[in-house]
Design a protein around this nucleic acid. Sequence first.
DNA 1: TCGAGATAGTTTAGGTTTAAAGTATCTGCT
DNA 2: AGCAGATACTTTAAACCTAAACTATCTCGA
Lengths: 177, 177
Amino acid sequence: MPPFSDNENEQNPVEDEDAPVLDLASRLTQDHHQSLKLWLRMLSCTVRIENEIRSRLRASFGITLPRFDLMAQLERYPQGLRMGELSKRMMVTGGNITGITDQLEQEKLVVRVPDPKDGRAYSVKLTAAGRKAFATMAAEHEGWIAELLQGLSGADKSQMIELLSQMKQHLNASDEK
Amino acid sequence: MPPFSDNENEQNPVEDEDAPVLDLASRLTQDHHQSLKLWLRMLSCTVRIENEIRSRLRASFGITLPRFDLMAQLERYPQGLRMGELSKRMMVTGGNITGITDQLEQEKLVVRVPDPKDGRAYSVKLTAAGRKAFATMAAEHEGWIAELLQGLSGADKSQMIELLSQMKQHLNASDEK
DNA sequence: TCGAGATAGTTTAGGTTTAAAGTATCTGCT
DNA sequence: AGCAGATACTTTAAACCTAAACTATCTCGA
């Protein structure tokens, strides 16, 4: 993720104190700035955490983030997931999934099981070794996340989860058109 | 960014209703789960928006997100930024900045101006063409963000900005150790 | 049955990104 | 002055990722 970071120490856009009632254009601009600010701040937090997790995964377990993520998906679906499912869930292209799966398969952490009903499709599953490796990593990973987010209280976190759910719901709704 | 998506339609971990007072381990686990949920939700929203913006930038302007981001940085610093500054601000490695800058320079959107004081360093600046191109794109971009975030009210956005600031501050604090 | 279109996955070409090693320049200490 | 280490940037190799083209299989209507 390549953000343009949002910097705290920044001159705010000049507010027009002389206009008690803002016209449409001003309100629009104001909303735009607020949205942009929110986006940049969210992006910057996300990238920070992501970079931290990436480097810890590498240092502690010699694994990359996308591989870990793919295993995390599979861990929740013991019956396996098809390539297309993985692509949708991880929000990356199918070609990308092919590559990551290739790697993990080579390391014997996952297997491609042909779908007996559909000659085109596979189910990707964790191997026993994959499940074992993931369990170890996931426990550590969860602790890291908790550590990185400890700046927020439990109530703050709940609130943020709520707000993000709203955001997500709206994002889902708007691209169904 | 390659997340493992957080799915709404998901069986929640079973809560232990029989334990009115939670012991330390339970509270810890609970916090861990909450943090993880928050993280996955934030990541998923971020990736969604990022993918959307990426594809719109490509469709409308034939530009990639990292190039746009680099230009956005420069636009705020007319005197130019050094490679290392760009790297820090965009939270990516130096080698990455080299590549993006090479591309933009080839397209005549930025220039590398040697630093007269330091033979190793450059200032990267937008060219006139770069400034012009960026202005057009930035206006559109800001509108897209506002559109994508319109699921939240102004108050919601303010609140979220506040929470993210807290998060960011804590992230900054914790890696200064 | 058969063939048109849809679907599942892979491949390809090119850009992005990282970590690590490499080059050139600068700074400060002696 | 001169050298050791730090700094600014680039290069390299490998992984990641995308969009688009491709292959193989399936579905369904005529």
